[in-house]
Design a binder for these strands. Structure first.
Lengths: 363, 363
DNA sequence: GTGAAAGCGCTAACAG
DNA sequence: CTGTTAGCGCTTTCAC
């Protein structure tokens, strides 16, 4: 009837033992006689005691046993991105090993929402996809005093970070095409800012505050091409729309759509560098549709080497990055007994040559 | 030096206002003058107050704003399973919309570990993959008094559940092949129990306590075949190893490996029913390797209709189930203002005919 | 608008 | 092995 909720105290009173003893029955079986423990557990069942309240015990202990993972984009988008999924797999593996839960929080498009979620998350530490310089979430994390690592973030700020050699990977991709004799290039780039619209890259892109990964990869492409005497002006670079300018972002579709800029022109490139495997797939689809043979007429290189890269037709030449390992590394850092605030880990990338690239066609 | 941690009280004292007022400054801006509020926020910044402690406020409020998702298998495995991923996408979409976090907890192979994680999770409710009758996790959930829904679970017990018409889907798959004139069938099944070893299905499978989904689909296959006068004895049924009997479960590989039982025999089937798209892909790979043409010499039907089913070569004929919708439905149930303890939702399945099935070859 | 009192349910620390 | 003390940090009353 007017029953109070059953708590540890209810139980202690009913058995006339102290609360502490009941607590021990659950958390430290070795601290009391098996007989007493059994009596307590039996009484618990009888009275309907649900066991120690996790929130209360977390408050007291000061540890939640949960690791937070914050995305840049919406959560549901993350689950459509093969790269994000492989990353999560790595982080999940380590969480599992350590017996901690994994809390996913959205990096909602509405920025303020994302900040609140981070403020309220009951976690011991955070892994944060943070590609954008001056991301306000970092401030919130600092305020909260939570240990955190940034993923794929600019290296500038004094926060621990895990990333990859984006620039080096891009350089290798471009070099590979150069070695095959290509001279006319097209690039399909991520966006440089949340509010960019789909289309050609602005000439002043270098000066734009913007996404770090995009910039690095662009620089990598350019370094290799310039070193081989290819004028950057001669390279057609197109970028996808930023999150603020799009609703449904399907990267494969973006690649397919953008490919028209590269493929439907008089002197079209013989080689295309795409910043992800999905973009690359879209390019291949567009090419096939136009009767352009890959790799015979057109070479395409992706980025990431997600699982599907090897399974599409033709199998994609791409830049491999250790996605699961990146996640696992972040988790290990966060779960280590002593958190290294100055860790800056850069994982290597390497080119994987498959079937989507071939020597430049002789005109 | 010996500073205490900065709490709401520290701040209240420093400004000589009540704790309540400080709390309001964060949670109910309209309850105090903007000027005072600003003074409080400024002081907070100065003293390094991290904002209201989420665990403490959750304890007091009694709501965590978090939804839990518990898997049957290891967490890292879930991230390799396209069906699980699509499900998560659906659940994530609804969580995001409601502004609640999503806590992933493993259903570790070591059962006891899984129980503890569920006991300690700081969530308001749980979605639980629970395919196994008598799963002890249900007991724990009941003890805790947490609202929960079971996913893909037996309908027997009086717990809310979201599932699909597994049997009907299987029936349609088999019927499709019958309509194409096939008479010699092979089936690639999930395991019926955690400890089954790879190989032929035991004749007494019906009596085994076991995984509900597996049983349902088998029954569906059998119903359709029997109705068409195909003797169940004549159907070669092979199952994959259970979680206890395997380390690395790669379903595509399982399918590939098991296919040998079906393809390397004198009178091999002309049609194979596989319980997942991955298993089906494995079969196709094995067939190609043997020079058996799909669908000309061999028809293959998958199950689930995950995204890749349409993208493989040949595109898979398969049973579609609304995976994301299943996740979203579970989330909506859990997030609804009033939780319906008796909800039993069964989502429909339907056959999607693509390129992996064709009329039975004429001998 | 603002504040005082009264817990939310649990466990660390230490004494017996 | 068992019990006592003293909070963890916050927010829900309800009075002013």
């Amino acid at each position: 009837m007017g029953q109070r909720r059953v708590t540890l105290e209810t139980l202690a009173r009913a058995l006339s033992v102290s609360k502490m003893t009941v607590s021990n029955a659950y958390n430290r079986p070795d601290q009391l006689s098996p007989a007493l423990r059994q009596r307590i557990l039996d009484a618990a069942r009888e009275l309907g005691y649900p066991g120690p309240n996790p929130v209360a015990s977390t408050l007291r202990r000061g540890k939640s046993g949960t690791l937070g993972l914050a995305f840049d984009d919406s959560l549901s988008y993350a689950f459509t991105d093969p790269a994000a999924i492989e990353f999560m797999q790595g982080i999940a593996r380590e969480c599992e090993r350590a017996g901690v839960g994994l809390l996913l929080v959205p990096g909602s498009p509405r920025r303020s929402g994302a900040l609140d979620v981070i403020r309220h998350a009951m976690v011991d530490s955070f892994a944060v996809f943070c590609d954008y310089e001056g991301d306000e979430r970092i401030g919130v994390l600092r305020e909260r005093g939570l240990p955190f690592v940034l993923i794929d973030s600019p290296r500038l700020n004094d926060a621990p970070a895990v990333g990859i050699d984006d620039r080096g990977g891009a350089r290798q991709a471009a070099q590979h095409l150069l070695d095959l004799g290509h001279r006319r290039f097209g690039i399909l780039s991520f966006c440089l800012n949340p509010d960019t619209v789909e289309g050609p890259l602005a000439p002043d892109w270098q000066d734009q505050a913007g996404y770090f990964v995009t910039k690095e990869r662009l620089c990598g492409y350019r370094e290799a091409l310039s070193a081989a005497g290819i004028a950057w002006d001669s390279v057609a670079v197109y970028q996808v729309a930023g999150v603020d300018q799009t609703v449904d972002n399907d990267p494969e579709d973006d690649g397919y759509r953008l490919a028209r800029f590269l493929l439907d022109q008089a002197s079209r490139p013989t080689a295309i560098l795409a910043m992800s495997d999905e973009l690359a797939r879209g390019v291949v689809r567009a090419a096939v549709e136009r009767g352009i043979r890959v790799p015979r007429d057109l070479s395409v290189v992706g980025y990431d080497d997600t699982a599907q890269a090897a399974h599409v037709q033709p199998a994609l030449t791409t830049v491999h990055q250790p996605l699961a390992e990146k996640g696992a590394t972040a988790a290990r850092l966060l779960l280590a007994p002593s958190f290294d605030v100055h860790a800056h880990i850069e994982l290597p990338t390497h080119l994987v040559v498959r079937a989507s690239t071939a020597p430049a066609p002789t005109p």
